[in-house]
Each structure stands twice: as C-alpha cells, then as structure tokens.
Design a protein around this nucleic acid. Structure first.
Lengths: 219, 219
DNA sequence: TCCTGTGAACCGCTTCACAGCT
DNA sequence: AGCTGTGAAGCGGTTCACAGGA
C-alpha cells in the first residue's frame, strides 16, 4: 500500500463519515474527489488498493466503504495514546474530542514540571516524566505525542522508544532521531507558516530572484 | 523552485539557527542532512537552488546560508497573521513564541462567541468574526490561521479570501475549497493519528493483508 | 583529500485513457 | 449511458555517481 494512499485514506474516511450522517448511501469517485480535494482517478486508484468495492456504472456504497477503510487503517480496537508535555498545545490535544470514536484513547499525560504533576487535564492525571517509560509500557501505549519544549523532545522520545512505542507524532520544532522501526510524523507550526510565507511573497510579486516570476499554487 | 525544496528550507533554517547560536561557523551537506533528517545529496540540490554558496572541500558558512535562506523565504519584513477561532488550539497558537523573530506577527484574533469577544489572549484582543473581512483588509493580513470548529471553517475561509488573504493554514478537520490563487495548507491531528495507527498496526504484525511489512518514515 | 554542484538514472506517485461491467 | 478498475504514460522528486574546485 503506497504511503501516499495511506495518508489520504483518513481524509476519505472523514468525508464519508459526514455523508453517512447525512444519510447519503452512494457516491462516485468524482464526488469523493471533490470532497477530498484530489483527482477522481486518484480516488479510484487509492480505493482499488482496498479491493474492488465499487459498482461500475453506479459508484461506491458509503457505509460499506467506511467499513473497508476502517478495516485497512485498523480502527477496530482502541489504540492507547500518551501525551508528553502539558503546555498549551498538549492541553489542546488532550481536550480534542476527535480521539475517542476514531479508535484512539489518551491513557496518559506527562510533564516535567512538579507543579503540574498530580493535577489533571480532563480525566487524565498528569504524571512525572521520570515514570514515562514504565507507565507507557504498562499501559501498552502505541502512539506517543510529543508536545514538550524543543530541548526536552529528543530525551522523551528516547524514553518512548524504550517503552516500545513505535509511532510518534512530534510537535516540537526539532528533527527527532529514532530507530528505523519507529514511524515518526512531524508537525511544525513555524515551518508551515514559513512555507506559506514563501508562496504569499511570490503571489504578492515581491520575489527576490530575477524578474517578475509568476507564482501560483493550489496545495 | 520545487515545492518539496520550499518545504525543507525552513527545516534547514531551524537547524542552522541553532548552530549559529552555538557559534558553529561551517558545516557540510552531510552534517546538515543529519540535522534535517534527509539525504546529503538532497541538501546539496536544495541549496543549489539558492545559488552556489558552498565552498568545495570545505562546506557551507552557517550565517551566510541563514541569510540566503531567509532572503529566499522572504523573512525580511514582518507578515501579518490572523487567528480565527479562539478555542484551545487557537490559544495555544497565539501563545506560541515562534512567531516573532521568525518574521510573523499576530495582528488579530477572531471568535464567534460573544462571551469571548472583548477579552484577549496575551496582547491580542479577540474580535467578532463579523468584523473579520474588514479588519483583515485594514491590517493587511497576509496569512490566516483557521482553528474554528469544522462547521465554521469554510465560512471564515471565504471571509478571509474576501479580505484578500492568499495564504491559509487550516487546522479544522475539513477540506476547504478555495480559489486557485490561494495557497492552502492543512494540518489535521486526527488524520495524522490515523496514519500513525496504520503503520503501528503493520509493525505490530496485525496487518490485514499479507505479511509483516517494515514501516519507516521521517516526514 | 575533501566536499560541492549537477547531469543522469531511478523511483514512486499522479493522471490519462480506455476496456469492461452494470 | 455511466462509472469503475487499471495498464501505460507522464511528471516531479530523490539518489547516484562523478567531474571539478579548494
């Protein structure tokens, strides 16, 4: 299964779930393409990796497709998630309601600040980072979310790896070093803004190099 | 300039800035590759798009390279940023300190909730979304950050577009429809987790189709 | 010798175009 | 007629491999 396809399936799933709520039962690859912001051929090729679940001349059945994607993404049992670093962002994620019902459950939150340890965010008690490895191992944490300051990120990542966590989502503005068997995804607000800044500058005609370069884009 | 290169330059910049703080003056493409988590040939090719600023047999001069990347990304003047939707995430972003000094300044925050309007986050007053278009236009907002609930996202996006904002960073879990001249970037926590979930499942040997696949990634 | 800069090969993903089924 | 599923072409990006300069 191509990496690019894996990255799009959740987007399809999101769109399909909304259609399902609206009692829409069938849609074409073209419909789904518009909802997901991609090409229709792309949709058909992606879905073909799940098997041949469409009906020629008709389209795809919404609920059935949802089940197939869920199956492929493995959203069957709940996955245990730990949040490391309870700053503004950590709190925001902990309160995010898109976890449960999508197959994820936050089972632990850690912080280095003794002031915070013992308090809780929602129903989740904040524990000391010193206990991270043991607690994560015990609660079978599958996914670690790193929202610490950048100086602490690599250290807590090492501890997560020690606890056999093989999937890490990092919000700290550093490139983490992890063993090859660990899947890492990086979200960096500053980087996103700088990328946008580049295109914004192009669009406003203030490009640095050479003469008037025509820039356009539609991510 | 290839889109993929634009997306990596901010990462190089981040790494170089830290080296600069540590008074390191020179580095090789190999060094930078490790810091950025990419291949050394990649680094050289990317940097070649800026011009030939390396010295054969030696490497690149850190501070000079920083200036060149800054120039290319256009981090010279400050860009005005507006945050729309002051929930947990909006607040987290507003308090994020990576803006100033990286060429970005938050000049406005909006919310639909009358309870919140009139209060402020940090030094930024929260204004009513009904005033969004006018305020953004007046303050020459270049980048809009959407952190509203998903039902409100498309509407506020339309207003941002009306205000001539051509760069939008969306955290709401919907695919926004925008005109072709608008650059859009999407960050969806739920999607990120589901992608990780897929690879985690593969790694733990519970894959649906076929045998054990070795997953690795360093997005 | 060391490291950059870059043509060329390679690779994966996207898109096209159409055969095939309903 | 309509829409899927897919071989094949096209495209952008990555990596290789090495010429060339310090």
């Amino acid at each position: 299964m191509p990496e690019a396809t894996v990255a799009r399936l959740p987007v399809y799933l999101r769109a399909l779930s909304e259609l399902s709520n609206e009692r829409i039962t069938t849609l074409s690859s073209e419909d789904l393409a518009v909802l997901a912001g991609v090409n229709a051929a792309q949709v058909r090729k992606d879905l073909s990796h799940l098997g041949s679940y469409g009906v020629r001349g008709v389209g795809y059945e919404v609920d059935y497709l949802i089940r197939q994607i869920n199956r492929e993404l493995g959203l069957t049992g709940d996955r245990a998630v730990a949040i490391v670093g309870v700053g503004n962002l950590g709190r925001a994620l902990a309160n995010y309601d898109g976890f449960r019902g999508r197959g994820f459950e936050i089972v632990a939150a850690f912080d280095a600040d003794p002031e915070k340890v013992g308090r809780s965010i929602g129903a989740i008690p904040i524990e000391a980072v010193s206990t991270l490895t043991e607690v994560c191992r015990r609660r079978k944490v599958a996914i670690g979310v790193v929202t610490t300051p950048k100086n602490a990120a690599q250290e807590v990542t090492d501890r997560l790896v020690d606890a056999s966590v093989v999937s890490i989502l990092n919000f700290a503005p550093v490139v983490l070093q992890v063993p090859a068997h660990v899947t890492l995804r990086q979200v960096d607000l500053g980087v996103e803004l700088q990328i946008l800044g580049f295109y914004e500058r192009q669009a406003s005609g203030l490009a640095a190099a050479g003469g008037g370069r025509e820039a356009l884009d539609a991510g």
